[in-house]
Simulated scan of single mutants.
Amino acid sequence: MNYQELADKIKVWAQELGFQKVGICDVDLSEHEAALQKWLDAGYHGEMDWMARHGMMRARPAELLPGTVRVISARMDYLPPQAQFAANLSDPTQAYISRYALGRDYHKLVRNQLKKLGQKIEQEVGQLGYRPFVDSAPLLERPLAQKAGLGWTGKHSLILDKECGSWFFLGELLVDIPLPVDEAKQNDCGKCTACITSCPTQAIVEEGIVDARRCISYLTIEFDGVIPEEFRKAMGNRIYGCDDCQLVCPWNRFAELTQQEDFHRRPSFNSPDLVSLFSWSETEFLKNMEGSPIRRIGHLQWLRNLSVAMGNAPYSKSIVSALESRRGLSDVLDQHIDWALAQQLAQLPYNETSKHGRLIRIIQKGLPRDA
């Protein structure tokens, strides 16, 4: 079989299936194992215990699918045409939602297209051992993407490409045929440190290394406990994820809008007013978030995140009233609501706070006289 010819066909088929770029690499990630272990030993994975549980399997694709000799790494762009260029980041009365989550959940869509690609290859070669992955298994997808020529690992730890920046999803198709491999991309960040200096919580502790415990994306999505107070002000109005490191990246000026309508902004986020989103009942939350990656964090965590954003918003009677109405649902939520109420009332002159004596007693710590 002419494997080079097959590799060329695979890249054409991938584009027909909606991928913008595909690369091929071998399965040797041994050079990344020491760095992975060091990251885990430092506790940078936070409470994502599954990362430590799978250990070095993440650097050994062949353990996921015995017989694997190549990884086909694929990129699918997701920048929506109505991304609003982060305009609502500057409006503290509105919620900021990470751009990747504005539309439908990408996992199923990308995985289905990878599966179709595998089926197409199987039709060509007669028999094929393959398996698609999209954040669905312990796999170092970014080192694989770099090795396959899809880009390089930026200082924010995401994959960057000169042609499109970083607004794209990654997926992998493990196969058992010896396709020719592509050339890895070299780092082209240069001396730029925009992503590091712009991180609201200083989560990028070294070039290419993120301490998840400080990352707003981790705190709002993966972490379901009490968000440390030291990070709450820095979170601003970010209620699901954070794009700051990508928003400031010079390479993202070249990013193209996605043609995939599933990734376009859903109507419920056209005007994401904090109080309106906070007013959703659990039933409304589940209905409005059907098909969205946000659905998996659940209603209480949604309210927790919004509480922090409301605490960071300018004083509003409607915000104070809304926060009060949600007390008693859970201890974790109450801790964030009480903090938010304290932030709201601290913006009032002292003579005005006396009108909120009952609220101040609820918050327990009260307010300083010079607030």
Results as ranks from 00 to 15, higher is better:
residue 320 V to L: 14
residue 3 Y to P: 04
residue 254 F to W: 14
residue 178 P to Q: 04
residue 7 A to M: 07
residue 293 P to C: 15
residue 295 R to D: 00
residue 193 T to M: 15
residue 297 I to D: 00
residue 267 P to N: 10
residue 220 T to A: 03
residue 28 D to L: 05
residue 290 E to K: 07
residue 8 D to T: 15
residue 165 G to A: 11
residue 11 K to T: 06
residue 68 T to Q: 11
residue 330 S to Q: 10
residue 109 L to I: 07
residue 150 L to P: 11
residue 145 A to M: 01
residue 171 G to E: 12
residue 79 L to S: 12
residue 66 P to R: 07
residue 200 P to R: 04
residue 138 P to V: 00
residue 71 V to A: 13
residue 266 R to T: 13
residue 92 P to G: 10
residue 267 P to A: 02
residue 143 P to I: 01
residue 354 S to I: 08
residue 285 F to P: 08
residue 362 I to C: 03
residue 2 N to T: 02
residue 196 I to K: 00
residue 27 V to Q: 04
residue 181 V to D: 07
residue 162 K to M: 06
residue 133 F to N: 01
residue 299 H to S: 09
residue 68 T to A: 15
residue 225 G to T: 03
residue 154 G to H: 12
residue 253 R to V: 02
residue 210 V to F: 07
residue 208 G to L: 05
residue 12 V to Q: 12
residue 296 R to L: 02
residue 58 R to N: 00
residue 167 W to Y: 15
residue 316 S to C: 04
residue 15 Q to Y: 11
residue 40 L to V: 01
residue 344 Q to V: 02
residue 12 V to K: 14
residue 364 Q to R: 11
residue 335 Q to G: 08
residue 248 V to D: 13
residue 198 S to I: 05
residue 182 D to A: 08
residue 191 K to S: 15
residue 30 S to I: 01
residue 324 E to R: 09
residue 212 A to S: 15
residue 361 R to C: 13
residue 325 S to N: 12
residue 18 G to R: 11
residue 301 Q to P: 00
residue 6 L to Y: 12
residue 146 Q to H: 11
residue 266 R to H: 11
residue 330 S to M: 13
residue 348 L to G: 07
residue 161 D to S: 15
residue 132 P to D: 13
residue 361 R to K: 12
residue 43 G to L: 02
residue 104 R to H: 15
residue 181 V to A: 14
residue 209 I to Y: 06
residue 334 D to A: 00
residue 259 Q to G: 09
residue 78 Y to D: 08
residue 201 T to N: 05
residue 188 D to Y: 10
residue 114 L to H: 11
residue 71 V to M: 08
residue 193 T to P: 00
residue 301 Q to D: 05
residue 142 R to D: 04
residue 352 E to P: 05
residue 355 K to D: 14
residue 261 E to R: 04
residue 203 A to N: 02
residue 248 V to Q: 09
residue 225 G to D: 09
residue 362 I to K: 15
residue 54 H to S: 03
residue 96 Y to M: 10
residue 221 I to R: 07
residue 12 V to T: 13
residue 203 A to E: 01
residue 37 Q to N: 01
residue 161 D to F: 11
residue 234 A to S: 10
residue 272 P to I: 03
residue 291 G to I: 00
residue 207 E to A: 09
residue 288 N to I: 05
residue 178 P to V: 01
residue 141 E to R: 01
residue 371 A to S: 06
residue 283 T to V: 13
residue 127 Q to W: 10
residue 67 G to K: 09
residue 255 A to D: 14
residue 106 Y to Q: 08
residue 216 I to K: 10
residue 98 S to M: 11
residue 142 R to H: 08
residue 309 A to Y: 08
residue 222 E to W: 02
residue 6 L to M: 13
residue 363 I to H: 04
residue 75 R to N: 03
residue 292 S to Q: 12
residue 133 F to V: 01
residue 143 P to C: 00
residue 205 V to P: 03
residue 261 E to D: 07
residue 247 L to P: 03
residue 334 D to G: 06
residue 281 S to W: 14
residue 66 P to A: 12
residue 168 F to A: 10
residue 3 Y to N: 09
residue 278 F to K: 01
residue 69 V to D: 14
residue 17 L to W: 06
residue 189 C to G: 04
residue 251 W to M: 09
residue 319 I to L: 09
residue 275 V to E: 14
residue 251 W to I: 01
residue 79 L to V: 08
residue 160 L to Q: 14
residue 150 L to S: 13
residue 2 N to A: 02
residue 208 G to N: 01
residue 59 A to C: 06
